[in-house]
Structure formats: structure tokens, C-alpha cells
């Protein structure tokens, strides 16, 4: 009986943790920021036309966020991205990554 109570407590606790809402990212705000800062190179649709700039559309959001944080901190070095991320806040990163990760990738490479 004791075991069942403990089990119920654990389940309830886990459910409670799961129910805590993650801070909602705002993809619409991300779109506005992307248009302002990212789109010139990566495209507003995240499918950059220039092969030097990676496609972002549909990429994992946490990977995009990690990349932006690393550029901002200097852990990942790139003169362009270092400059671009300097002005991004944590909310901006949440929002632009929510925006780009939610777009459909379009693949065009032919060999």
C-alpha cells in the first residue's frame, strides 16, 4: 500500500512538472525579427538562396538556439554571425528559432 502511495506521489509530481508551461515563444515576433536581421542572408522562408548561408527552415529549434547562443558568447566564431547575434536578446533567440524551425524546408540541390 505504501508503495502505491509513493507511486501515486511520483506520478502526480511528474504530471505537475510536465504541466508547467514552457515560456511561450512568439513565432510571429520571431518573423518580424527575422525579417529585420536574418532574412537578408537566410531568406525569410529559411531556405537561403546562397550556398554559403545555411538553410534554417525546419531545423531543430534547440540546435538553432544553441548556435545563436554560441555565436553571441563567442564560443562559435563567425564575423557575420557574431555581429548579428550581439543585439539579440534571449527572447529574440526564442522567437526567431520558433519561427525558422516551424517553416518547411525546400530542397533544390541537384547533382
Amino acid at each position: 500500500m505504501m508503495h502505491i502511495r509513493i507511486l501515486i506521489s511520483i506520478v502526480a509530481l511528474a504530471a505537475g512538472i510536465a504541466a508547467i508551461p514552457a515560456r511561450a515563444a512568439d513565432a510571429a515576433a520571431g518573423a518580424a525579427k527575422a525579417k529585420e536581421i536574418c532574412a537578408a542572408c537566410h531568406g525569410l522562408d529559411g531556405n537561403s538562396a546562397n550556398a554559403d548561408y545555411p538553410r534554417l527552415a525546419g531545423q531543430h529549434r534547440d540546435y538553432l538556439a544553441k548556435a545563436l547562443r554560441d555565436y553571441k558568447s563567442g564560443a562559435r566564431k563567425n564575423p557575420i554571425m557574431g555581429g548579428m547575434t550581439a543585439a539579440l536578446s534571449k527572447d529574440d533567440i526564442d522567437n526567431v528559432t520558433a519561427y525558422y524551425s516551424g517553416l518547411p524546408p525546400v530542397v533544390t540541390a541537384r547533382y
Partner: peptide, 19 residues
Amino acid sequence: PEVYSVPKIAGQHAAYIEK
């Protein structure tokens, strides 16, 4: 050392992957 999703690379620009 940090947990995050391994990036998707199918369809990424070849020049970027190579770099």
C-alpha cells in the same frame, strides 16, 4: 557537453556542410 538535438543536414547546402 550540452544536450540539444543533432542538426538535420539532409538538403543543407553542400558548401555550408563542407565548411
